[in-house]
Amino acid sequence: MNMQLCKYNTFRRHARMFIEPAIVSYWQKSQEGMLQKLHAEEKVIVGGDMRADSPGHYAKFGSYTMMDLKNNKVVDLQLVQSNEVGGSYHMELEGLKRSLELLKERGVTLDCIVTDRHLQIQKFLRESSITQFFDVWHIEKGISKQLEKAAKKKDCEKLRGWVKSIRNHIYWTAATSTTGPERVAKWFPKCLHPLRIAQYQWMAAGTFHKLETILSTKRILKAVAKLSPHHQT
């Protein structure tokens, strides 16, 4: 095409000297404005999650994002390297700690935080007396995987037809409830009449028992009680 292009080294020099500093400067000014607005608010709802450079437990870098969920704006980004914290499993907690420390320094008052079910984060937030809710999508994804796996077994094929309805039900449970016990009661209520599932030919009694086992484990019920009612990550 007879186009003249600069060499890659030239491009990198321009990026290092002009483009990247401009991006960093703009981000810092935007972040400062957001932190000042959040400082003026009485209660702030944030969400946090990490994206790693590779799946599994072999990631080297993780980028932790903290977002103001009322305005859907990113408040903070923290880049964590695995060798800083003794392994990739600990990166997410470190990213959360750094973001929360920044908000604390800037006088931001948290109402609650929405996260996934990372065990280290649950323990840290509980000990820090910070109200935590679980992102509905993370819970729904885990339940859907279990249902799809169960539906592959003999005599449980009909479970696959219920997956979409169960997904909808967990979002409805979260959005229409105000307390943990209410969410649990709506999630998997006990029928007041005798069990006659097979009679109505919805699913066999054995299949229903499998469904009940998946949806009413202690771990699932504990997670349902902490579903975020409105704001999600």
Rank of each mutant, 00 (worst) to 15 (best):
Q81H: 13
M91G: 01
K141E: 02
E32T: 14
E92Y: 10
G142A: 09
R196M: 15
E42L: 01
G62N: 01
G107D: 00
M1G: 14
I170Q: 03
N2C: 03
Q146D: 08
H209Q: 07
G86L: 08
G161P: 02
R160W: 13
L96E: 05
Y8W: 15
C6P: 06
Y89W: 12
L96R: 06
K152L: 14
E212D: 05
W137N: 04
D68P: 02
R106H: 15
T233N: 14
S228F: 11
A40Q: 09
W162K: 15
L125S: 01
E148Q: 14
T233Q: 08
L110K: 06
G107I: 00
S63T: 01
F124G: 01
E32I: 06
F133P: 01
Q28Y: 12
K70A: 09
T213R: 13
L215E: 02
K104R: 13
S63I: 08
V46G: 03
P181Q: 07
R12T: 06
H169E: 04
K60D: 00
V24C: 06
K153G: 12
Q78L: 05
G56L: 12
S30L: 12
R183Y: 10
Q36E: 14
E42C: 01
F18H: 07
Q146K: 15
K60L: 05
D116R: 06
S25P: 00
K222M: 05
